[in-house]
Structures are given as C-alpha cells and as structure tokens.
C-alpha cells in the first residue's frame, strides 16, 4: 500500500439500515486513472462520495472501516479541510451561475476566503484552464459568465475549478454522462493528459470509457468490490465470472 494516494481498507457504508458498500478494499497509486464501473445502483457513486465525505450531506448515513488519503485518515479530518484536498467533478456541469469564468476557476479560493495577489490568481486561472484544455477557447472572454459556455466547455470549466485547488486526488462522478459524444471524447483525452500530474478516481457506467482512459479498473456489484486490477488485464482475462458477464454485456 505504499505510494498509494488513496487507500480504502475494509470499508462499508450504510444508509439507515441498508448496507450500500460491503468491506471494500482498494488502493489507487499516484498519477493514474482508476475507474469504478458497475451497474446502476451498485454503490460506485457512494464509494466516490465517501472519499470526500459528501455522502454525509444525506441524512442517516454511517460508515465502517477506514480510508486514507496519502496516509492520513479521511474520517478523522474535518470535512472542510478534506474537501479542499479532494477535487470533485459531477455528472452535470455545475459552474456557479453568478460568477464569471475567471471567478469560477478560483472559486475554491474566493469562497474560502484564501487570499492571493492578482498576479497569482491570474497564473492559477491560466494554468488551470490550460490543464483543462479550455484556455484557448475562453481566454478572450474570461470575464463573461461561465453559463454561456457549451455543456462540454462548462464541464471542462468545472475540471479547471477543481484543478485550481491542486487536489491530491480528483474524483470524477460520471463526468461525461450529460455530454454529447464529441465533448465526451475531448474530456476523455483530457484525462489521459491530466494523469501526468493528478491522480483520478473515475466513476463510469460506460465500459468503453473505463477501457479507454483508465489504468486500473474496479468492478463493483451490489456493494461488493468483485475485482480490482490493471485495466488491460481485467478486460482481457477477468478473474471473476461476474466481471466477465458484465464486460460481455450479460447484465448491467
């Protein structure tokens, strides 16, 4: 488990009496894309939300087991501190409608009251937008509202907003499910580029996407982690019968 950015250790999650995740073990090394796939309702989104403790916004949740972010116990940290270290991109692009593109990128700093000089902010904005492959498209109207962009651009803006905080891990919750095929492939290319600097945990119910962008893949089925390993291996010689059936489209 050394050198792993995220370590999940016999982790379970409950909504009320309903157990959503059962003793999940997982470790994500640095600078890779790890994909979580599985049929709808299998618990993959819950798992990703447990990493930045967003599941706690729902009533009546509890967890058992441990999770570590760079060897620090996630569940002993303050959620506010934790979430600044963990970036998240959601299903639906959600730029802040009251803010300009510029302010959206540095929203993490602005809203948290973290001050920087004008120059530093300019650099952060440019770098984040470049990393998100959006700079060339928006550099001439940074002070227009972010909601005027297309869906794919908005999603890249949200990625830039998450990157601006220099996250230790980036959580991607089905980030392309609301986008058209062209924007989807742009964003998939972006992930491959991004992994030079960032570790990513990607939830997807698109098997093809997991195959295209991820280095490691986890297959989750009814709250259980069935199989986890290098993507290539899993897609060619799956160990578990259920994984094979899922990959060949027998269910899910």
């Amino acid at each position: 488990m050394e050198n792993s950015v995220l370590t999940v250790d016999t982790f379970s999650a409950f909504f009320g009496d309903h157990q959503v995740l059962k003793d999940v073990n997982l470790s994500v090394p640095k600078n890779v894309v790890a994909a979580l796939m599985g049929p709808s309702g299998c618990g993959k989104t819950t798992l990703i939300r447990c990493v930045n403790r967003m599941h706690e916004l729902l009533p009546d949740t509890k967890v058992a087991g441990k999770m570590f972010l760079n060897e620090k116990d996630i569940y002993t940290m303050e959620p506010i501190v934790l979430r600044r270290k963990v970036g998240m991109v959601f299903q639906k692009p959600n730029p802040f409608p009251t803010m300009s593109i510029y302010d959206n990128v540095i929203a993490g700093y602005k809203l948290n009251g973290i001050r920087h000089s004008r120059e530093d902010f300019n650099n952060i904005v440019e770098q984040s937008l470049r990393s998100a492959a959006l700079w060339d498209e928006v550099k001439d109207f940074l002070h227009r509202k972010g909601t005027f962009l297309s869906g794919g651009q908005q999603q890249r803006l949200c990625i830039a907003r998450a990157l601006a905080m220099n996250p230790e891990i980036l959580l991607l919750d089905e980030p392309t499910s609301a986008l058209d095929p062209k924007s989807t492939s742009q964003i998939e290319e972006l992930f491959v580029e991004l992994k030079k600097n960032v570790t990513m945990l990607l939830v997807t119910h698109n098997i093809g996407q997991a195959a295209r962008v991820s280095d490691f893949t986890a297959f989750i089925y009814i709250g259980e982690l069935i199989e986890y390993g290098p993507t290539e291996k899993m897609f060619t010689v799956p160990k578990d019968k259920r994984t094979e059936e899922y990959l060949t489209g027998k269910f899910g």
């Binding site: 916004l57 963990v86 959601f90 639906k92 929203a107 907003r161």
Partner: peptide, 18 residues
C-alpha cells in the same frame, strides 16, 4: 439546483458560506 450547493461544498466551502 442542488448541484450548485454540492459544487460549493465539494470545494471545502463551509455550509454558511455556501
């Protein structure tokens, strides 16, 4: 939309500031 609130909370912004 609820997802705006989520976006802010996921950036580590405290509830009251969100």
């Amino acid at each position: 939309p609820y997802h705006l609130k989520e976006a802010s909370l996921a950036l580590g912004v405290p509830y009251y500031k969100t």
